[in-house]
Computed example of a mutant assay.
Amino acid sequence: MGILDSFGALASSIIAAVVMLVFAILSFFVTIFIVQAGAGLAGYSPSGDFVALSAAILSAGAIAAGASPMTGLTDNV
């Protein structure tokens, strides 16, 4: 049964990777909307490439922060 368990683990890893990719794309689209709305409220009209760049930087930072363990916040007593 070890081979079947390995295929199950592989399938679950692939499904998890696809779900994480979908969530990353969705968060990028939401961040684009937020950046455009924020620029509009501030009275700016940036071009699409600057909006996409800033949304990519913000999304990458959020994904990296969510993936990192919060070991610095624990009390090591």
Rank of each mutant, 00 (worst) to 15 (best):
Gly43Asn: 02
Met1Ala: 15
Ile14Phe: 08
Ala37Met: 11
Ala67Val: 01
Pro69Phe: 05
Gly2Gln: 10
Ser68Arg: 06
Tyr44His: 12
Ala67Gly: 01
Ser68Met: 07
Ala62Arg: 05
Ser47Lys: 11
Thr74Phe: 12
Leu41Glu: 09
Ala65Pro: 03
Ala11Gln: 12
Phe33Arg: 15
Asp5Pro: 03
Phe33Cys: 13
Ile34Glu: 06
Asp49Lys: 12
Met1Asp: 15
Gly61Ala: 11
Ser45Arg: 06
Gly43Ala: 04
Thr74Tyr: 09
Ser13His: 03
Ala24Cys: 09
Ile15Phe: 00
Ala39Leu: 03
Val77Met: 13
Met70Pro: 04
Ile25Gly: 05
Ile14Tyr: 08
Tyr44Gly: 04
Met20His: 10
Ile15Ser: 00
Gly2Ala: 10
Gly38Cys: 07
Gly61Gln: 04
Pro69Gln: 09
Ala11Phe: 13
Ala65Cys: 13
Tyr44Ala: 10
Val51Cys: 03
Ala62Lys: 02
Gly8Met: 13
Gly8Thr: 15
Ile14Pro: 00
Gly8Cys: 11
Pro46Phe: 01
Ala16Asn: 05
Ser6Gly: 09
Ser68Thr: 06
Gly8Asn: 14
Val51Tyr: 00
Met70Gln: 09
Tyr44Arg: 11
Ser12Met: 14
Ala11Leu: 15
Asp5Asn: 13
Met70Ala: 12
Gly66Lys: 02
Ser45Phe: 02
Phe23Ala: 04
Ala17His: 10
Thr31Ile: 04
Ile3Gly: 12
Val30Phe: 03
Leu58Met: 09
Thr71Gly: 05
Ala24Ser: 12
Ala55Trp: 00
Asp49Phe: 09
Leu10His: 05
Ala64Thr: 06
Val22Ser: 10
Ile25Met: 12
Ser12Asp: 12
Gly61Ile: 13
Leu26His: 08
Ser13Pro: 00
Ile25Arg: 10
Met20Asp: 14
Ser45Glu: 06
Leu58Asp: 01
Gly2Trp: 05
Thr74Ile: 14
Ala11His: 11
Ser12Pro: 02
Pro69Val: 04
Ile63Glu: 01
Leu53Asn: 07
Pro69Gly: 02
Gly61Thr: 09
Ser6Val: 03
Leu58Tyr: 01
Ala9Cys: 05
Gln36Phe: 08
Met70Tyr: 10
Ala42Val: 03
Leu53Gly: 10
Gly38Lys: 08
Ala39Ile: 03
Phe33Pro: 06
Pro69Asn: 06
Gly43Ser: 03
Ser6Pro: 00
Leu21Ala: 13
Ser54Thr: 15
